[in-house]
Design a protein around this nucleic acid. Sequence first.
RNA 1: GCCCGGGUGGCGGAAUGGUAGACGCAGGGGACUUAAAAUCCCCUUUCCGCAAGGAAGUGUGGGUUCGAGUCCCGCCCCGGGCACCA
Length: 665
Amino acid sequence: MNWCPSCKTVLANEQVEGGACERCGTMVEQRFLEQWFFNISKYAPRLLENLNTLDWSATTKQAQRNWIGRSDGARLRFPVLDPLADAGSSAVSVTTEVRTGGTNIEVFTTRPDTIFGATYLVLAPEHPLVDALTTPMQDGVVREYRARASKQDLVSRKTSKEKTGEFTGSYAVNPATGEMIPIWIADYVLMEYGTGAIMAVPGHDERDFEFATKFELPIVRVVAGEGQTAKTPLGDEAYVGDGVLVNSEQFDGLSVDDAKVKVTAWLTSRHAGEAVTNYRLHDWCISRQRYWGPPIPIVYCDSCGTVPVPESQLPVLLPNIPDFKPDDSGVSPLARHEEWYHTPCPRCGKQARRETDVSDTFLDSAWYFLRYPSVGRDDIAFDAATTKKWLPVTTYIGGNEHAVLHLLYSRFITMVLHDAGLLGFEEPFTKFRAHGLIIREGAKMSKSKGNVVNPDEYIDKWGADSFRTYLMFLGPFEEGGDFRDSGISGVKRFLDRLWIAVRDRDESAAPDAEVMRKLHATIKKVGEDVPALSYNTAIAAMMEYMNVLRKGERTPARGEVEPLVQLVAPFAPHIAEELWTMLGHATSVFDSRWPTFDASLLASDEIELVVQVGGKTRGKVLVPKDVTQDAALAAAKADPAIGKFIIGEPKKVILVPGRLLNVVV
RNA sequence: GCCCGGGUGGCGGAAUGGUAGACGCAGGGGACUUAAAAUCCCCUUUCCGCAAGGAAGUGUGGGUUCGAGUCCCGCCCCGGGCACCA
């Protein structure tokens, strides 16, 4: 288990980032503890598959794909040679009369095509077969190696790439070649992934190559790349590229991809293995050695064993205790509370003991969206009709730091509840967008970097509306951006000008046609940008309109400025509400309709047509919006600044209606 | 190493294959003012030129196209995810 010595609790794999606790940054240790898990790994294929149907930020989906970590390959069985009969003999062909002890070593590989090059096996030091496989002669060194590996924490073990290992003294049979190959243990093989054992193909795997070189194990080429043959020496590194099989008997000449399928089929027919898909996603450890949290509703009874607390007795409430601080024992503070700890067994009524761990807080946040619409109901978790009306969540915006935490857990819980018939959907968040990170002084804001911004100071100085609008303006929402103090003044100035425009408006003046054209273009632009989360360009469009509205300190007509207040409202709600009141409305701006635009106002009869000659922009001409190609060309020739570039008969003329004319000469 | 993003003025950033640099910051000049602040107007990619004008230009090298920041191929750099995962 991952143990955080600072938080004094175990952590799920998802809550360990680069070997450190997700919450406090302390390096985690490894401890052996019995814990409760949710079987999320069973859902790995679905969690992965469904990603293709979700409208989520690409980065978030990719993070989940990486975390789930699908790999297609094969599980292969290597029979172990009877250690008494064959120990000590050198690698000889034993195709006939293989005497095996009946044990098999199962390995997972993504390269079944290279099995003819598997010259040894490696087990993780913790592999359950190690004891049985270790010969008396090797017992000392193996025992010592395992002890050393167990003491070393997982982080340094995973990061130090220096290969170490010991020979067990036993041999297995390569099911393809029939040759006997030595069985080693080494800490570069991890018990927690695959079967905890690998077939080593040093010719075509960098790690195996390094190990084989160090311990002088045989290296065989079984794949030949372009310009290589079966005899081409491997040199000083493994060949991991594509190619065709060599030194692989009947499979020689097949491509790597073909051979993966055919070798697996062949081994399957010989009962030596089968194709499998492996995932790196582990089960979710939900036990926590804390006080605050929902107790895991399990009772341990000497007669009945592990008994779940029946539904009628749920929830198990926390006892009110003064000493709720966790300690380093690995046991929850609840265990110190005798009265609570001892409870009758729900099944037989005899004295029994409660589970003292509480569940991970991520379990709570994994279903809060189900609870929220039904908070009015105390009798049930969530009401079916209400849930059907409001869920799944249409659009969810959050941080990518939850990609493999909250967002993965929520999907899993939703799937489980769906399968239990409690929900009509199996994905909780139809659309998810990850907001970007705000960068300041060249780094993402963090307490340790000392570059965090306290919003209160900015709100005091600039106002909440300015601060909020600035955050939306400083860069694309999904990419984040640079927070620079100097940038706020522009947004503040915009809101000030809006205030003045409303205050000084002319109630009787008729709106100007050109201004109204711009207004309608702005309504259109903002209306399109907001759902696309392009807040920065929406604000820019409103600023642009403000420049037109207040050009030369003109006094705007009411009809020119009133809709702008509605457009601004989602960005700067306080000032918008106040301005709306100033405009004489008795109800909230948020109860007013979103302004609509008149498309017929947007187009004018004459347009500026950009003229290119040979692809280079040479100027523009004013033409009717539905100008013909010939008329446009004539207009271009008539313009002296453009005409001088049009020498001779045009070879080709391209007119992009309403936009551009390109004359190729 | 693998997989995602991204690379555009002094800066933050705009650009359905069609005027690169919208909008904002910073900078310069001007109007108003006794003055300052505020407000308003103009300029501000680089190079050549007094100017008119011209040339170059979106990390880099090629390619497709009448036309490429945008599409395709190779490379470099930055940010993020995964990583002794077989």
